[in-house]
Design a protein around this nucleic acid. Sequence first.
DNA 1: ACTTTTATTAACCAAATGGTTAAACTGAAT
DNA 2: ATTCAGTTTAACCATTTGGTTAATAAAAGT
Lengths: 205, 205
Amino acid sequence: MVKNKKDSTTEARLLAAAKKVFTTKGLAGARMQDIADEAGINKAMLHYYFRDKDKLFEVIFLEEANKFFPKINKIFESDMPLFEKIEQFVNEYIDEMLENPYLPWFILNELNRDADQFLSKIWDIKNRPNPAKLLQQIEREVKKGTIKKISPIHLLMNLLSMTIFPFIARPMIERNLQMTAAQFDNMIAERRKEIPKFILDSIKK
Amino acid sequence: MVKNKKDSTTEARLLAAAKKVFTTKGLAGARMQDIADEAGINKAMLHYYFRDKDKLFEVIFLEEANKFFPKINKIFESDMPLFEKIEQFVNEYIDEMLENPYLPWFILNELNRDADQFLSKIWDIKNRPNPAKLLQQIEREVKKGTIKKISPIHLLMNLLSMTIFPFIARPMIERNLQMTAAQFDNMIAERRKEIPKFILDSIKK
DNA sequence: ACTTTTATTAACCAAATGGTTAAACTGAAT
DNA sequence: ATTCAGTTTAACCATTTGGTTAATAAAAGT
């Protein structure tokens, strides 16, 4: 595998370092000096390329959000059968989490800290998850009688919860259930099938 | 309702303020001055009563953890039938979250930041959730054939996820599903029945 | 060869922040 | 009335931290 030239530029190295530090320490906890050290590059370069801390944060967040959420929305809005949609959602989400385990944490953290600022300034409305179509689809299926009667909101909440929560709670899970990283990854792999199965068993007639 | 005298002492007011500020801003993001202002009390008093920021944080965390987790562990370890246990867990957890919506956030945040330090120094091992008994019970039920075949770990993960996640993701849920606070509370109330029902439907034979 | 632009560094700065201190206040015990 | 411990305040201090700058090196253009 040939290393992409861009990956070793100053800018790219700073971005990678920032991603790592923001992830583990949060926006407030991250130090510009830590990021510079992690990249092995002078701190002034962070300001040279990204102006200030908030801008740097924004760049990192948007890069990932713009890649990921459109994919999720495409699934939500497609014309697939409900169960297939659920399967695809779980798989897509887990794929993303394995590549960027920090993302949900990142988002929820900042959303918790200051939702207004985060949503209006940083998170473009086009890229926010929009499950409206999925909710309608569930309602239709219930009315048609193809699945058991269930509130669409609760089904959606259950789907999101079971998919996302393990990644947010990873440190707690690994500790309290005495799992190694490998065991955790293995468990996540199983969930690609377990979650859709669990849901199907619950709502099928 | 007569106001408890203790609730208006300087120490208690500082604690309440700290709880609020730590909750919304996190440990790193919280400012001692913010906490003092929130309490309407001189900043020096924070140091007078709690020595330093970390100690203050510790006091707040332990107070709640020592109240809550023993309750949860008692449920995990009791001899109730599985389904009743699930119901009680959900109800107990939701009760706690309504009173202290910040708790799971608080814990996961610090656990994510620095698990080792947090667990060894702050979170006494006696108060950590210990679901071993519940896992065994699920395994027994599967073997007896009273419920469908399911991995105990995944069932536990599903239970925790569906119960806890909505509180962690609250700001995102309220925004993206355009819910008011009242609607959110209402949805949570419904989940007391929805979660056990969803699980039962999925695992019953 | 030279000039100009871009990239990089080390030293520096101002503001924020956790923490200290000395003085003053309060209320009960003597 | 005085003392004395506990409480409270404003001013202060040292360090951290985000951000700037002036000087310099490297690259690109002429």
